[in-house]
Design a protein around this nucleic acid. Structure first.
Lengths: 154, 154
DNA sequence: GTGCAACCTCGACTCCACTGGAGGTCAAGA
DNA sequence: TCTTGACCTCCAGTGGAGTCGAGGTTGCAC
């Protein structure tokens, strides 16, 4: 069984994508990528996996968890690698997510700046301490999980 | 032994600061806060701990790890609770940190936006894939640790 | 046919910031 | 004095995103 020219070994994929082979197996286990196997049980990847990995890493940088990314990818019919249209749709979602995070950070920064002069840091009065800040996403504990269930400092 | 009016129990501190008592013990173990003990070995906190906690939680929201926060606090002579001047100095550092993160996010968003039309996501050419982005702080793995040692996608 | 790198699985370990439970003690009010 | 709730220590567990090592196979070049 000759090696198909467009199939990559896990080592190839790791080298080309910069994603460690351990992570590649981990992603497969988590259902983010897929592979075929040789008769000898070794993984063979279609080249499209590189694009998929780029997609995954970019989404991570936007702040999405692997689970969210997997969900996003699974909205593509039959686990397709994203086409231009899919990418456009998903990246619009990400952009909104990023926008929200940027907003939250800017609010925090502005409050911080406003507080530099006062040195207050009082729990009652300083509005840096208010809990309405979406930036709980970067707060204590498991960041992404808590974001929705907790409001930061109370 | 009468309860000193300005000493707080762990329950008081938890209620007033919104920080769970489990976290308070954890912070103490990590050297971020301190307490005295009663004859019966129960913790007694000076009121200043509330300010210190506010400081800690705010720093967390800026994205600092507990270790970084502890280091920042330890630059204060003899573990003082921050004065206005200290707070001003430290919060300026945080603001720069925040500014950098906001910048990185904005760059990422702009790249994302630029890519929406192209659908490329090619490892070689798409500059969303370039590794010079400080936002690795929000990337894979243990976010804060990796930020300095890794460059994101390679 | 041998040598060796690259691959396989499985389970255990990492880090960070905590949380929870078990089993026991302390403090304060009735 | 009793009861109750707040507190104590110690240890184990959580979750996300992996990493590492042991022990065993595959594949390819010479």
């Amino acid at each position: 069984m000759p090696k198909l020219p467009d199939m990559l070994t896990i080592g190839d994929v790791a080298r080309r994508s910069g994603v460690p082979h351990t992570a590649l197996r981990f992603y497969e286990e988590r259902g983010l990528i897929a592979s075929e196997r040789t008769v000898g049980n070794q993984r063979k990847y279609a080249r499209a996996v590189l694009r998929r990995l780029a997609f995954i890493r970019t989404a991570q940088r936007v702040g999405l968890s692997l689970e969210e990314i997997r969900d996003a990818l699974s909205t593509l019919p039959e686990g397709r690698t994203p086409t231009k249209a899919d990418w456009s749709r998903l990246s619009n979602v990400w952009r909104r997510e990023l926008d929200a995070r940027i907003d939250a950070m800017q609010r925090l920064r502005d409050r911080l700046t406003a507080c530099i002069g006062c040195g207050c840091l009082s729990l009652k009065s300083c509005h840096l301490m208010n809990k309405d800040d979406v930036l709980a996403a970067m707060g204590p504990g498991a960041p992404r999980l808590r974001a929705s269930t907790e409001g930061g400092i109370v």
